[in-house]
Amino acid sequence: MIPMIRSVALGLVAGLGIGTALAASNASRDGILTGYAAQARAENPSFAGFSADRGRALYLGPHTGGKPETNACAACHTADPKREGRHAITGRAIKPMAVSVNPARFTDDADVEKRFSRDCPNVLGRACTAQEKGDFITFLAGQ
C-alpha cells in the first residue's frame, strides 16, 4: 500500500514539473539502502537508521589506517562531491559522486559493493560496515 501511495505521489509531483526535489529517490538505490539497513541491524542491534551527517564525516575524513595518499574519499572525489574526481595514481577522471549531478550513482548493487570492497581498505585500512555504507549513500543521495 505504502509503495503505491508513494508512486502515485511521485507521479503527481513529476506531472506538476517539480520532480527535481525528489530526483534522489530511485527504486534500485532504495533497494540497496534497504539491504544495508538489514545488514546494519544484524551487525549492531542498536542500529537506528542511516545518517547523512555521519556519511559526510566519512566522506571528508581525514582517516588513518589506509594509504596516506587516500586518507579520505574526498582525496580522489574532491571535497565537493558534485565535482569530477581523479584517480590517485592514474589521474583518470571519476564521475561526480553526488546523485543530483550523477543520478546513476548507487543504482547497481554489484558495482556499489565492488567499489566499497576496493576503496574502504584504501581509505580506512579495513572493510566498511553496512552502517558506514548506508551513511555514505544517504549523504551523497542528498547532494
Partner: peptide
Amino acid sequence: HFGDNASLD
C-alpha cells in the same frame, strides 16, 4: 594490480 586492488567477480 600495480599497487591497487582491482579485484573483480
